[in-house]
């Protein structure tokens, strides 16, 4: 990490050093026939993080690995798995890092979801003397 990084848009412009010459997986770039299934898959893919990219969802990445993950998602959806099950399958392996949606049931994310409530309370408290009481 301490080495001098001089990265310009590493995540965007994939260097041409190939990631394999194999054609992309079936469902990497093909939609499911069932529109409802595809919608569920697409929504999930937006929220899964590409493992080899600089902060992109697998839906937005051109990396081969992201293509394989899209294939995995679509195939499992087609088999009847729920998006939550697929997300859990990946979280089991890669941790919460792989999901862009912080899970409200995990304690590590409680501060994130408490923040809006807390901040609004603090804001309210800060202005408590700024306003005149409504006249009766």
């Amino acid at each position: 990490m301490r080495k001098l990084l001089f990265v310009i848009g590493l995540g965007l412009s994939l260097p041409l050093a190939a990631q394999g010459s194999l054609a992309p997986a079936d469902y990497a770039n093909r939609q499911l026939e069932d529109a409802g299934q595809e919608a569920r898959a697409a929504a999930l893919m937006e929220e899964l993080r590409c493992l080899v990219c600089q902060g992109q969802s697998i839906a937005d990445s051109d990396a081969d690995m992201a293509g394989d993950m899209r294939h995995l998602v679509r195939e499992r959806i087609q088999r009847g798995e729920s998006p939550a099950e697929i997300r859990d399958y990946l979280i089991e392996r890669y941790g919460e890092w792989v999901s862009y949606r912080p899970a409200p049931e995990r304690p590590i994310f409680w501060p994130l979801y408490l923040a809006p409530v807390l901040l609004l309370l603090i804001a309210g408290w800060m202005v408590r003397r700024r306003f005149r009481r409504p006249r009766p």
């Binding site: 997986a25 690995m65 394989d68 993950m69 995995l72 392996r93």
Partner: peptide, 11 residues
């Protein structure tokens, strides 16, 4: 299709 790779949690 990287299936085993993903199953093992390799990135």
């Amino acid at each position: 299709r990287s299936e085993a790779m993903i199953a093992l949690g390799a990135s």
